[in-house]
């Protein structure tokens, strides 16, 4: 097995062994879906939302959550811990560049975000009959760009934060902002118009997910915003990342 594969395998084991990352990262969005689904009113078509069921309307926000939890709480705090504990430094003493550890972490966390998303979408489909995204190509593009934007921001936090505490603190604030604009705390139809408009451009782009879900092509400007965020934050993170 190549050393990189070995690293991915090890980091996967560590992810699975940590009950917090496993529960919060993988199953929390699904638990919330099941909780909401238990309320009969939320399973009925609502006149407030042009006759759409709340549970259908809320699915993109749960995907925002799946991506946000892993990319903004797990990823930056683990990378900052690895720096603080000298794990990256120890790897610098071996023939293996510590950049590979970063790559392995990204792989594992991407896998986790993907798994959390599949779990919540599949549960919605099977248990509550929530339809799958209608515009498959648009949804795929929106999802990939959205996840790239959130993860790049997470890596930028890991690159800049001097300590694990700082990384966790900054990332939690960003996480709450992403949740708020993504309509997780308050459904977006209840948010003021201006905030909902800003939210369309906040990663991972809840509107692009919603539009493609309902069969429309996501707005190019919004997709572009996600792509640009991913590139800018990603390049900054790569340039400013400190190994010790």
């Amino acid at each position: 097995m190549s050393s990189l594969m070995k690293l991915v395998q090890t980091e996967t084991r560590l992810f699975v062994r940590d009950p917090t990352s496993l529960i919060v990262g993988l199953v929390l969005p699904t638990l919330i879906l099941v909780g909401l689904g238990a309320v009969p009113m939320l399973r009925e078509p609502s006149p407030d939302m042009d006759g759409i069921r709340f549970i259908d309307y809320f699915m993109p926000s749960l995907i925002v959550m799946s991506v946000g939890v892993v990319g903004l709480t797990n990823l930056p705090s683990i990378m900052a811990t690895y720096r603080e504990r000298g794990i990256l430094r120890r790897m610098r003493t071996t023939p293996m560049h510590p950049g590979n550890l970063l790559l392995a972490q990204l792989t594992v966390n991407l896998g986790a975000a993907l798994a959390a998303t599949v779990l919540v979408v599949a549960t919605g489909r099977i248990v509550y009959g929530v339809p799958l995204p209608e515009h498959a190509l648009g949804f795929t593009a929106a999802f990939i760009l959205g996840i790239a934007a959130v993860f790049s921001i997470g890596m930028l936090v890991a690159a800049l934060a001097p300590t694990t505490r700082a990384a966790t603190g900054i990332a939690s604030m960003l996480f709450m902002a992403v949740m708020f604009f993504g309509g997780v705390y308050l459904p977006r139809f209840m948010l003021p118009d201006a905030i909902a408009r800003i939210g369309e451009y906040v990663p991972p782009g809840v509107q692009t997910l919603l539009d493609s879900w309902n069969g429309e092509a996501p707005a190019a400007a919004q997709l572009l915003a996600m792509g640009a965020t991913a590139v800018v934050a990603g390049v900054l993170a790569a340039r400013m990342f400190k190994w010790e």
């Binding site: 084991r13 560590l14 062994r17 940590d18 811990t81 690895y82 504990r85 000298g86 794990i87 430094r89 120890r90 003493t93 071996t94 023939p95």
Partner: peptide, 16 residues
């Protein structure tokens, strides 16, 4: 780095 083994002052590993 292939022929050098280094034990660092205060370097830890992941808890688990």
């Amino acid at each position: 780095k292939q022929v050098l083994g280094i034990q660092l002052q205060e370097s830890r590993l992941p808890d688990r």
